[in-house]
């Protein structure tokens, strides 16, 4: 448990329409590892990731993040956990009408007072930090453009920057490259890998492109019908297993 960071046991999720998205998932994640979660659409990848920061309420099981019980956390306690878990979305989910740098500053909201944060009164070092992060993802020149003026790939890099601004222990990405062209996908994955390696951040990335998962991860988890059916090194993932996961 020395370098364990996230421990998930018997996690289940049944949606109100009766769909069982997760059927008892047990997974441990170590500090600094880059994990890809692969599986067909509807396998429960997205539900799994969203349960970890409680954007989706789990139906049962236990999630321990740095030994804190995520499922029992309420209010401020939950927000304190969430601020340490960065999240990147398929649709970028940037506040489109706000400037790029503002979107990165949003990563800091969890550390600010409610009123100051709501009014957008960010302090000097927070702003400097945000600009620094934009430089790391190669977007310093776009800092004062509105987020919706950027290309899809650039917007996703802003998504990475926003997650970085949370100073997170984990970054979760839900299909980060599903709506991007191959070239931008490559760039986005490279930046994600780079910042996570540099800062020792654990990455949990939902992907459905197996080749990307093989190229970038330290570990691959295969999900099928809400169950873990593969967990191992990319080199251990053979054609048969892939076929089983996707069929």
């Amino acid at each position: 448990m020395s370098d364990g960071i996230l421990k998930i046991s018997k996690l289940t999720k049944v949606y109100s329409d009766g769909t069982a998205a997760l059927n008892g998932v047990d997974l441990d994640f170590k500090k600094g590892e880059f994990v890809s979660i692969i599986g067909p659409s509807g396998a429960g990848k997205s539900t799994f990731i969203r349960c970890i920061n409680r954007l989706v309420e789990p139906s049962g099981g236990e999630i321990l993040f740095e030994d804190k019980d995520v499922i029992k956390a309420r209010g401020q306690e939950l927000r304190n956990i969430r601020r340490q878990i960065g999240m990147i979305f398929q649709g970028h989910n940037l506040v489109k009408r706000s400037e790029t740098v503002k979107n990165v500053l949003h990563g800091n909201l969890g550390y600010m007072g409610s009123l100051k944060g709501g009014l957008g009164l960010f302090s000097k070092d927070v702003i400097e930090n945000a600009i620094g992060i934009l430089e790391r993802v190669g977007l310093q020149e776009q800092a004062f453009k509105r987020a919706d003026e950027l290309s899809g790939g650039q917007q996703q890099r802003v998504g990475i920057a926003r997650a970085m601004a949370q100073n997170p222990s984990i970054i979760m990405a839900d299909e980060p490259i599903a709506s991007l062209d191959p070239k931008s996908s490559e760039t986005v994955m490279q930046y994600l890998k780079k910042v996570c390696d540099e800062d020792g951040i654990t990455a949990l990335v939902n992907l459905h492109q197996v080749d990307f998962a093989k190229a970038f991860s330290d570990r691959i988890v295969g999900v099928r019908k809400g169950k873990i059916v593969f967990d191992g090194k990319p080199s251990d993932l053979n054609e048969d297993t892939i076929h089983y996961i996707y069929n």
Binding site: R82, G86, H106, N108, L109, S114, G117
Partner: peptide, 8 residues
Amino acid sequence: ALQSVGAS
């Protein structure tokens, strides 16, 4: 997205 960063 803002919920996920821990915003109030």
